[in-house]
Simulated assay, not measured.
Amino acid sequence: MTKRFGIFAPQGWRLDLTEIADPVEQYEAMTAVAQAADRGPWDSVWLFDHMHTVPEVTRESTFEAWISTAGLLRDTRRVRVGQMVTCNGYRAPALLAKMASTAHVAGGGRLYTGLGAGWYEQEWTAYGYPWRETRERMAAFAESVELVHRLFREDKVAFRGAHYQVENPVNEPKSADGSPVPLWIGGAGEQVTLRLVARYADACNLGRGKPEVIRQKLEVLRRHCDRIGRDFGTITKSTSISAFPIAGGADPERATRKARGRWDVDEFHTNAIAGSPPDTPFLIGSSAEITEWIGALFEAGIDYLVVYIPGVAYDHEPLHRFAEEIIPQAW
């Protein structure tokens, strides 16, 4: 498969809009990053499905994922827009399928629909969603994945599960181009999540951004695919990293000063990886150094990388450096 790259837009969740006072200007900064990616070699722009900030809850802005998805689809012309990933507990699956199909049409067929089980307990309870233990949450997620998959493809869907029941909801229009909306599943659980990827997903995101983890998880996914007769090669395999490319020989602290804003180096690092799986790397280095790390990820078996660049709301230079000096090397 062709190697492709996506970039996270600064949405506020990781305290990445705090240096901009006006909320309208904050939203425009998010849009400006998406439009800059639209003019470059990036395949996609991604949003987090979270309501307020990490690593701690603050009064800082965080823009809602699906409203922002629709806005970015209308404000761009080429890139796809996705969520990494939609939290299953926040929207009923039939409603999510309807929202996704509408957004897909609004963007001329450029939507990726990401879906995950959800993990941020404090946020669930803050917004009135009942938090359930892992087994029940995963069971609901499994039902939702099947439902969304079917509603993207079938005209009549009757479903009676333990968590969701629907009776032939009308999901029209389904698509902008006659093909199902691509479904991405986020997570790397070997017993439930990767089994769902094998059966239902067009793509997966394994998180972590570590070659040894990628190899292990992809081997499990391959076994699940073999068990049901799914072609492993038809699934896009992605992971995510935080990265900040700097000029060769540049001092990292000085080079990241504008991106850090009010944060010191330790806080900058913390905010860059907040919300990621444990031990997810945050790479500050030259384009050559980051390219070497990325090469190891592709060698481990991924074909799609989603990058979070801290501070990109205030300075597009590292976005352009990544696009001009790193992405071409992967091809």
Rank of each mutant, 00 (worst) to 15 (best):
G109N: 04
R254M: 12
V265A: 14
E299G: 10
V85S: 00
V306Y: 06
G40M: 15
F232G: 06
L147R: 09
L206W: 03
E212N: 14
P41V: 12
G207Q: 05
R227F: 09
T18D: 13
S101C: 15
V307E: 01
I284V: 14
T86H: 05
D75L: 15
P41G: 12
S276P: 00
I228D: 10
S276Q: 11
L151K: 05
A259N: 00
A158H: 10
L147A: 02
G275W: 03
L17M: 05
A250D: 14
W42S: 03
A274E: 08
W331A: 15
E324I: 05
G229D: 01
S44I: 07
E292S: 08
T239Q: 00
P211W: 05
T270G: 04
T234S: 15
I290D: 08
F5E: 00
D303F: 04
G207I: 03
M138A: 12
P245L: 03
R4L: 13
L305F: 07
T134R: 13
A250M: 10
I235Y: 05
D303T: 09
H269W: 12
L73D: 07
W46G: 02
F48P: 09
D226F: 03
K174Y: 07
E212L: 13
G207N: 02
D43Y: 12
G285F: 07
H163L: 02
L47N: 01
V220F: 09
T18M: 10
A37N: 02
L17A: 04
G128A: 08
V197P: 08
I302D: 03
T69L: 15
E133C: 01
T193R: 08
E154K: 01
T31D: 08
V57Y: 11
A176W: 07
A158M: 01
Y304N: 13
Q83C: 15
